[in-house]
Design a protein around this nucleic acid. Structure first.
Lengths: 225, 225
DNA sequence: ACCTGAACACCGTTCAAGT
DNA sequence: ACCTGAACACCGTTCAAGT
């Protein structure tokens, strides 16, 4: 794939520029492509240079997560029923994640480690308290909602970030064919559903279904209080 | 941590023994501990020996996933309303995953690559068809349910498989303290919820809440058809 | 303050060779 | 059929050194 970033001119690095370069690399080639040595190469610098800006690779991933979370456009606080407002807030996260699908795995475990992540979490917990959940229950429901948003983006059927479109299509085709080759007596539903199990043509619809199902579930739990 | 498995006597390896050893390693020391070289060492064999039984590490992980999925105790097909029966089936997966939490990440993307996984998927799709979902919608809801089950187990707050109990408790304490140190005006809910956001004392309750919320969501979606 | 260079202890995997 | 041994191209990271 050759050099991604134009081999940097000799400006100094900073935490932000390094994190942004890492994000760009993950976006274009997937999470596995983010290695200290590869990123350093993209930045035209020695691997060890990055250790001045980040304690270790974990800290670098914290930076990537923060970069994504800073793109979450939280809606202004307004009046109205909590379910509608909660949905808006969750949708804001979903939108930011969908723009950087390969980072969802990284963001999932790092929400509470940056200000933008904490701002999001605080809003969610506040809305769940308004819905009547205790702090304990609200926390659990909040975590559950976060996991749902990140999973929807991370594991959209047929997604594979590093690959070219041909490679991706080929992967999907192979998986589909494997399902078609199953014994039809034993696996009629799998054969019938193969198209949708292996690929997601309308990602808007997929994410929407997930958000709908999540919200319905939370509302039902709230109604039970 | 020393050697895990008693340095094997000189019996031959097989796909199954290798997969079982891999599962045991992941269970006791986490997914990161599963390297070809480490597993070979545990089995008292050269790293390359494993490549006779598995094409590559991916295939080894397929084997781990199959080992876990073969423990799913699917309930007998019986009469009754679909929601109750779907819940039982999902609960069977959840139980198997909870016994091997570090493998949930591996199982998530490999459900359709082994017979026990496909048997599970077929049952879920069948029940969702009975609920009135189209093949397309049913597939999406089914994938959504799988992601929920695996996430609940993978990302139980305060979990960390490789660590000793002291290490785990210490990690939780550090995260809790970091939340307590936040500005209370800006993050009142986070401070209030810190205990539950950083640890899960009742994992039964956590998994139950997740399954409840999922089922409520699916039922609401079905009612909308 | 910011970055380099050499070195260490790891990875997964190929390929030829042994029994 | 099943396993070994040497080698290759990678990892993350430490530590001392440069400017």
């Amino acid at each position: 794939v050759a050099t991604r970033t134009s081999t940097r001119s000799k400006e100094r690095l900073s935490r932000e520029t390094v994190a942004q370069a890492a994000l760009a690399l993950v976006d274009s080639e997937g999470l596995d492509a983010l290695t200290v040595r590869r990123l350093a190469g993209d930045l035209g610098v020695t691997p060890m240079a990055l250790y001045w800006h980040f304690k270790d690779k974990e800290a670098l991933l914290d930076g990537v997560a923060e970069a994504v979370l800073s793109e979450v456009a939280l809606p202004a606080v307004r009046r109205g029923a909590w379910p509608g407002r909660l949905r808006e807030v969750l949708d804001a996260l979903l939108t930011a994640l969908a723009a950087h699908p390969a980072t969802a795995l990284v963001v999932k475990t790092r929400l509470l480690y940056s200000d933008p992540g904490r701002d999001f979490a605080e809003r969610v917990l506040d809305l769940l308290a308004e819905a009547g959940f205790s702090p304990e229950r609200g926390s659990q429901v909040g975590v559950y909602a976060l996991l749902t948003m990140t999973s929807l983006v991370s594991d959209t059927p047929g997604q594979s970030v590093g690959a070219t479109e041909e490679e991706r299509d080929q992967e999907v085709r192979v998986k589909w064919a494997a399902l078609q080759a199953l014994p039809p007596k034993r696996y009629p539903r799998l054969i019938d559903s193969a198209v949708w199990l292996t690929d997601c043509t309308e990602s808007e619809q997929w994410l929407g279904l997930g958000l709908d199902t999540l919200m319905s579930g939370i509302e039902a739990e709230a109604a039970r209080l």
